[in-house]
Design a protein around this nucleic acid. Structure first.
Lengths: 378, 378
DNA sequence: GTGAAGAGTGAATCCCTGA
DNA sequence: ATCAGGGATTCACTCTTCA
């Protein structure tokens, strides 16, 4: 697992390795109901949970297309619930176990539609999960509303939540920004539905009625886990979570009741190819780069004591002192402290605020830090 | 009102005029709390309800933009609740009255964010409302996540529900399809937030912290009401619902507690003019350019992480990474960024610069984008 | 007048480490 | 547990100012 050890060590979160982590068996499928099976797992043993629970779809009668062909709706027995109360009870039970086995800094994703997502979301809040975002999967190619009685149901909703309000969760902000052409990733994701070669079929019919696209899981795991993290899926189905986890170098545990789905899932995961190390690495935040003190640049001669710094509009000036502090405009202190004081701002990043005069005009002192890093990093 | 007569004449519902409708006073603002004020209204007296209740945002401390400026948050008392239980109690009370005064064939719209919408939706289902769609308002210009801690919260959710499961509700299918360039209107609506001239201001500051855009109400009313219908808004605010109702030839009733909002609303509705054809075209959502991020092609499997790219003359090479970034020749970043860096050029179109090896020779990665668009666009 | 540049702003649960 | 301090972090659009 050389990949695991080298990648992802610098993420936004630095987990305190206080409690000895219980190592559990991973990369395996557990056959059975998710509630009793989760009960057998120890507390705080997984980093992320992805759950695609039954939707409790209340479809009355059969649905036909205008041409008379039959729409293959979700009518399996596992999707029938006597009432909202029964569904709520089921939801509370599996979410309670999910929260227990989730590490304190772990996160959970749950996907649903308007039939069930409101009940699921409210239950999550009631149990202490802390919602971080609701994400809209905007389907690029949804099934139209054949009868013209409502708006085309063209999206599904995912809830992303941490185990508790104060969790220091993993969010690979920079990687998401890169994935979205250098703009912040938004809460609405446009992705095609699962079809074509990706859709598992047996004898010409689809194996699972609601197989999720791998692209969806790909984005979820890339955003919120690190290589080597354990991802659990209590409603494993045909194993999309497992297949993507394997590709991305994450460990997985799936729980599934239906033998037909289990077979298909294992076969599929077996065929999935893991990415190699260079492909797995992602863009890192500056936050995760080695820290350099401004004083170090003074000591090592990258900037001389006595150098005059200013801001981009030359409104304020400050002099670099021998110990790496600044003095100017009646203030003295760190590059950040003086920067915030002269502006009267609550905070300031001195690295980008203060500029140094060069032959090509003003440049932020951060460029000196980058030069230093390039020269000293292996 | 030529527009009105042409659109919406073919509605799904044909109401049986059995029970004599109770005529209530319309086009008026009721000053007071919505729960006691709704109690004074008779049963089954309104055709549609649009509700924009407090979201219970639970904001922490102050928030500043990267430039140091302060974010003007919603800190009003009307958005503060002691607990989820208190919010639920409030929600149950106003929804119960709303359902009572709604006609049996009427519908309700409620807007919210992840802070409150799950609780609201679950309560609606518990009380017997029948959800018809959840609609996503995708904000064209949302506020970014300034700290890089989550996904940009770029949408709000609306729930559209009928008074009961068997209601024969109004849905102007044709009008919606016309409004959407002859494609079925989907459950995700791209609309800008309320700003510019439309945003009500007094002394340079916004009158209401969360004024909704008229385009949103326009689409809601055009979809689900007929001219002459009575629309009630129990959280009237600055009267967007009233202004749009007047323009569309619907009757309105607003309930609002804050005197400052009431004044602004009445003044605004007084100034509102009935709709003409030109206004209709302005409201139409412009056909957006399909934009595809390179990362999307990686996620959806059109290009695999680890793939080697090169330029047309094979001078430089780069590897595709899991998040859609490239790494090669000592650089890492987007397809455009790495392209410009290896060439030493100020800019570069990565789509045409980077080539992928195929059995027919090198091809620009732009061809993959075209393939993706062909597969996913309607 | 016209365009470029700069300032302002929007329903937001918005940092992390070490003492 | 709290507190201090380093330093990381933004997109689309409107309106104003100034050349």
């Amino acid at each position: 697992m050389g990949v695991m050890e080298q990648i992802g060590t610098r993420t936004r979160k630095r987990k305190a390795a206080i409690a000895p982590q219980i190592a559990i068996e991973t990369d395996r499928l557990i056959r059975g109901d998710c509630i009793p099976e989760m009960r057998k797992l120890p507390d705080a043993c997984v980093d992320m949970i992805f759950a695609d629970p039954p939707y409790n779809l209340q479809l009355g009668g059969d649905l036909n297309r205008p041409d008379g062909s039959h729409v293959d709706a979700v009518t399996d027995d596992w999707d029938k619930f006597d009432s909202f109360a029964a569904y709520d009870s089921f939801t509370r039970d599996w979410l309670r176990e999910a929260r227990r086995i989730l590490k304190p800094n772990g996160t959970i994703w749950v996907i649903g539609s308007y039939h069930n997502i409101f009940r699921v979301g409210a239950t999550m809040q009631d149990q202490g999960f802390w919602i971080l975002n609701d994400i809209i999967w905007r389907k690029a190619n949804p099934m139209p509303n054949f009868k013209g009685t409502r708006f085309t149901n063209a999206h599904e909703t995912l809830i992303w939540a941490s185990q508790n309000e104060n969790a220091r969760y993993t969010f690979n902000y920079r990687a998401m920004k890169t994935l979205n052409d250098e703009l912040q990733m938004r809460s609405d994701w446009v992705l095609p539905i699962c079809g074509g070669q990706e859709r598992l079929k047996k004898g010409g019919t689809k194996v699972h009625p609601t197989q999720k696209p791998e692209a969806l899981l790909y984005r979820v795991m890339l955003a919120c886990t690190r290589p080597g993290d354990v991802v659990l899926d209590p409603f494993f189905g045909t194993g999309t979570t497992g297949a993507v986890a394997k590709r991305l170098g994450r460990k997985w545990i799936g729980i599934e009741r239906e033998e037909g789905y289990c077979e298909a899932a294992l076969e599929r995961i077996e065929a999935a190819l893991p990415l190699d190390e260079s492909a797995l690495s992602i863009m890192q935040s500056p936050k995760q780069q080695p820290k350099v003190a401004f004083g170090t640049l003074v000591e090592t001669g990258y900037i001389a004591p006595g150098t005059m710094l200013t801001d981009t509009k030359r409104r304020w000036k400050a002099v670099v002192r021998a110990d790496g502090s600044l003095e100017g405009e009646g203030h003295a202190g760190s590059i950040h402290g003086v920067g915030s004081k002269v502006q009267g701002a609550p905070s300031c990043n001195g690295w980008t605020f203060w500029q140094i005069e060069t032959k090509d005009g003003l440049k932020p002192i951060d460029t000196l830090r980058q030069t230093y890093l390039l020269a000293t990093q292996p």
